[in-house]
C-alpha cells in the first residue's frame, strides 16, 4: 500500500497507553503514518513540522490530561488553525468532566469521544470512519483509500459527487 501524506497524531502522556493506541491503529499505519507526542507542547512541534513539509493531519487522538497545557486547549487551537481545522478530532479519556467535554464539543467541534478503557475494534472503527469523512471531504482522488477505509461510503461518494467520471 502506498503511504499517503495524511498523518494520524496520537497525544498521550503515559507511554504504555500511547503504545496501546499505536498498536491498535497498526492496520492503518501503512497508509496513514502515525506520529506520537507526550505533551501538548511536543504535539504542537510535531504538527508545525508536518505542516511545514506540506503534510496533512487527518486524525488527532488526544488524551484529556497532559502535562502543561491540557488536551482540550490543544484541540481548540487545532480547530482555530486553518490548516488543521478539518482534522478529525477525538478525545480519548477516562477523566474528562462534563464541563471540559462540553467545552471540547463547542469550541473544538470534537468529532468523537472515546472513554477509557476502549476496545481495539472500537478505536479502529472510529479511526476508519473519521478518516473516511476526512478523505471524502478533503481529497480529490479518493480511490487509493478504498481498500483501507470504508469502501461503501467512498463508493457512495463517487456516485453522488461524481469525483470520478467517464473519460
Amino acid at each position: 500500500m502506498k503511504t499517503s501524506d495524511i498523518y494520524i497524531l496520537c497525544i498521550e502522556d503515559e507511554h504504555e497507553v500511547l503504545d496501546a493506541v499505536v498498536r491498535d491503529l497498526e492496520k492503518l499505519e501503512d497508509q496513514f503514518p502515525v506520529e506520537t507526542a507526550t505533551s501538548a507542547e511536543e504535539a504542537s512541534e510535531v504538527i508545525g513540522k508536518l505542516l511545514e513539509e506540506n503534510k496533512k493531519i487527518g486524525l488527532v487522538l488526544c488524551d484529556h490530561i497532559l502535562p502543561g497545557e491540557n488536551g482540550i486547549e490543544l484541540l481548540i487551537e487545532l480547530h482555530k488553525n486553518e490548516k488543521t481545522h478539518n482534522t478529525r478530532k477525538v478525545l480519548l479519556t477516562g477523566q474528562a468532566g462534563l464541563d471540559d467535554t462540553v467545552k471540547a464539543l463547542n469550541q473544538a467541534r470534537l468529532h468523537h469521544y472515546i472513554a477509557k478503557p476502549w476496545s481495539k475494534e472500537e478505536l479502529l472503527e472510529v479511526a476508519v470512519e473519521l478518516l473516511t469523512d476526512y478523505v471524502i471531504e478533503q481529497e480529490e482522488n479518493i480511490l487509493p483509500y478504498m481498500s483501507s477505509l470504508n469502501a461503501n461510503r467512498l463508493s457512495e461518494s463517487i456516485r453522488t459527487r461524481r469525483s470520478v467520471s467517464d473519460g
Binding site: 461503501n152 463508493s155 463517487i158 456516485r159 461524481r162 470520478v164 467520471s165
Partner: peptide, 16 residues
Amino acid sequence: MSNTATAAMMITVILP
C-alpha cells in the same frame, strides 16, 4: 448513465 457512476453504485451493492 455514466459507466463510472453505475460502477460506483453497484460496488455498494456487492460489498455486503
